[in-house]
Amino acid sequence: MPVVFRHKGFRFLFFSNEGNPREPVHIHAVKDGIDAKFWLHPVCVAYNDGFDAKTLRELVQVIESNVNDIERAWDEHFG
């Protein structure tokens, strides 16, 4: 599971074996055993395993600021 970047203790990553066929580009934000998944187009929560609404809003903003880096990492990893 490649970590694309870190921010305030969150790891932003994707899973190499997630979905068959592969799901559209997305990113997971993980911290303290809690995971949330975000679609990139548009950036929105796909699922949330326990973050509060304020945290989710902050994560959306961070992801929006890093969409190009996330897409580049996705393309490099999955070809």
Rank of each mutant, 00 (worst) to 15 (best):
D69N: 11
G50L: 07
G9K: 14
S65W: 14
E71S: 06
F10H: 04
E58M: 07
K54P: 04
K54R: 14
G79L: 10
K8W: 03
V30D: 06
A29T: 05
Y47R: 09
F5D: 01
F78K: 04
A53F: 05
N20I: 15
N68G: 11
W74S: 02
R22W: 11
F38W: 04
H77T: 09
D75Q: 07
M1H: 05
F14R: 00
H26M: 08
E64V: 10
L13C: 13
N48P: 13
V3N: 03
R6S: 05
A36V: 02
L59Y: 01
A73K: 00
F5S: 01
P2Q: 07
I70L: 01
A36Y: 00
N68A: 14
Y47P: 06
E71M: 09
N68Q: 12
G9A: 08
N48Y: 08
V4N: 01
R57I: 01
V67C: 12
V3P: 00
A29K: 01
F5L: 07
G33H: 07
V45K: 07
A29D: 03
L59T: 00
K31I: 02
G9I: 04
F15I: 13
R22L: 15
M1D: 02
H28K: 13
F12A: 02
F15P: 08
D52M: 05
G50Q: 12
V45T: 11
T55L: 04
V67A: 10
P21Y: 05
E23A: 13
Y47C: 11
A73S: 11
R57A: 08
F38C: 04
V25E: 15
D32H: 13
P2K: 11
V3H: 02
D69S: 13
V30C: 08
P42D: 11
N68V: 13
E76K: 06
C44R: 15
F12P: 00
I70Q: 00
F5H: 02
G79S: 11
K8G: 02
R11P: 00
H77D: 06
F15T: 09
D32R: 15
D52A: 08
A73H: 02
V45A: 06
K8S: 06
G33F: 04
E76Q: 08
F12Q: 04
M1P: 00
H77I: 06
E58K: 15
P2Y: 02
T55C: 08
V62Q: 02
S65E: 14
I70D: 00
F14M: 07
V60T: 15
K54G: 09
T55A: 06
H41A: 13
D32V: 08
H41R: 13
V4C: 04
P21F: 07
K8T: 03
L13N: 11
E23C: 12
W74Y: 05
S65H: 15
G19M: 12
I34W: 06
K31W: 03
D35V: 11
P42V: 10
L59Q: 01
N48Q: 07
V3E: 03
L13P: 03
P42K: 05
N20E: 15
M1A: 08
V62C: 05
A46I: 03
I34G: 04
G9W: 07
Y47H: 14
E64A: 12
G79C: 09
I70G: 00
C44G: 14
Y47M: 10
F51K: 04
A29V: 03
L40S: 07
I34E: 04
P24T: 13
F10G: 01
